[in-house]
């Protein structure tokens, strides 16, 4: 059987979902028999080098760059998975959604206890090298079509394992109640 090609990315997420993938522990050695990783933070492949069978996205979109990466993923992956709360609903970063972004920036860079006396020019980060913050944090399904949603913060390693192996082997997913959690 040809190895399935898998890409992963972390947008506005905390990387906990990627860590949960690593929590499959020894099974990671089985996984690499079944799949070949393409663009992913766990290897050094930084841009898509071929079309992928499965794209796994952690985190929602908080910046213009997140949107760009997400669209690339949709374009380059046959099946797109929203992994975890942040990708599915925005998650914790979306707590900023009912607060103007300027207030968030001012709190961090102008008013912070250890910052306020040390930023005399009242600088807010705004260089062309850093991406623009979006007005709010968007769940990825508001921007692209998503094929599967795996819930949890993070999803359990068993859930990830069961779902991935089913997809790879073309079997029906076996997702018993115990492996699914919503916190």
């Amino acid at each position: 059987m040809d190895k399935k090609i898998v890409a992963t990315t972390s947008l506005a997420g905390c990387f906990g979902c990627h860590m949960s993938v690593l929590d499959i522990d020894e099974r990671i050695l089985d996984l690499i028999e079944l799949v070949e990783f393409n663009k992913s933070p766990i290897d050094d492949i930084k841009t898509f080098t071929k079309h992928c069978d499965i794209g796994i996205v952690e985190g929602g979109c908080a910046t213009s760059e997140n949107v760009h990466v997400l669209k690339e993923f949709r374009k380059n992956c046959s099946t797109l998975i929203a992994l975890g709360e942040c990708a599915i609903m925005g998650g914790l970063p979306a707590l900023r959604n009912n607060i103007p972004i300027t207030e968030c920036l001012e709190e961090a860079y102008l008013n912070g206890l250890t910052t306020k006396d040390n930023n005399p020019d009242r600088i807010l980060p705004n260089d062309e090298e850093i991406p623009m913050m979006l007005d709010r944090v968007y769940p990825i399904r508001e921007l692209v079509k998503v094929d599967f949603f795996l819930p949890g913060c993070p999803p359990t390693a068993d859930l990830i394992w069961n779902a991935l192996t089913a997809l790879i082997l073309g079997k029906e997913m076996d997702l018993p109640y115990e492996v699914i959690r919503y916190d």
Binding site: T63, E103, C104, M133
Partner: peptide, 9 residues
Amino acid sequence: VEFRGFERF
């Protein structure tokens, strides 16, 4: 290149 705004929210 990322910012969360935790201190505020």
